[in-house]
Amino acid sequence: MTAILQKQPCDLRTYIAQGEYAIADAEDAVITTVLGSCVATCLWDPVARIGGMNHFLLPEGPPSRSDVSSFGANAMELLINALIRSGALRGRLRAKVFGGAEMYKGLTNVGNQNGRFVLSYLEREGMPCDGQSLGGVQARRVEFFPAQGKARQKLVEDTHIVEKRPVPEISSDLELF
């Protein structure tokens, strides 16, 4: 997972893609991403005034790939550890979560699984979730202001659900002409 740390106000707007995270403490810093079925977790420490956002693709991966950062548990731990190394206290972290849309109707429910995973993870770790926007059928653009702990989203209007088309029935009959 790519880590982006903003400690100085040089580039105050950071975009993260799938499998990435960023943390910042600059007052004007903004971390952004665009989500479909993926989930982004925004964590912040209101006392240290530092926060970060991750963007993960799947709740879990195969056991042989436990190091991959686009899986939920790994993405969460990487973000939490980076925040702690930068002065946040785990017991003060608060969350806001976004994403988990159903982008491919009838094909997969990974968005729903991602949403359930992140809420379960936060509950298990004792981290309060102050806000959430999970599910639905549209992509989201999320902006997080880490020093303030504020987040906003905008639904992306030009996305459409891709319908799974029924597979034509294959016949075992053979016709010769």
Score class of each variant (00 low, 15 high):
4 I>W: 02
6 Q>V: 15
11 D>G: 00
12 L>T: 14
13 R>H: 11
13 R>K: 12
13 R>E: 07
15 Y>R: 01
16 I>P: 01
17 A>Q: 13
21 Y>D: 08
24 A>D: 03
25 D>G: 14
25 D>I: 06
25 D>E: 10
28 D>C: 03
28 D>K: 02
31 I>G: 09
33 T>S: 15
34 V>P: 00
35 L>K: 01
35 L>H: 07
39 V>D: 15
43 L>Y: 03
46 P>Y: 08
51 G>V: 05
51 G>H: 09
52 G>N: 07
54 N>A: 06
55 H>W: 05
58 L>H: 06
58 L>G: 00
61 G>L: 14
63 P>H: 01
65 R>M: 04
65 R>W: 12
75 A>K: 03
79 L>F: 07
79 L>A: 12
82 A>Y: 05
83 L>T: 03
87 G>R: 06
87 G>W: 04
92 R>N: 15
96 K>H: 13
96 K>E: 14
97 V>E: 10
100 G>C: 09
102 E>Y: 03
103 M>P: 00
104 Y>H: 14
105 K>V: 02
106 G>I: 03
107 L>W: 03
108 T>Q: 01
109 N>G: 11
111 G>P: 13
112 N>W: 04
112 N>H: 06
112 N>L: 06
113 Q>L: 10
115 G>W: 00
119 L>H: 01
119 L>S: 11
121 Y>W: 15
122 L>K: 03
127 M>G: 02
129 C>I: 09
130 D>S: 12
131 G>C: 11
132 Q>V: 04
139 A>H: 08
140 R>V: 13
141 R>W: 06
142 V>F: 02
142 V>P: 09
147 A>I: 05
148 Q>G: 11
149 G>R: 00
152 R>C: 13
152 R>M: 08
153 Q>E: 15
153 Q>T: 11
154 K>C: 07
156 V>A: 07
156 V>C: 13
157 E>T: 15
159 T>V: 14
160 H>W: 13
161 I>E: 13
164 K>N: 10
168 P>E: 11
173 D>Q: 13
175 E>N: 14
176 L>K: 00
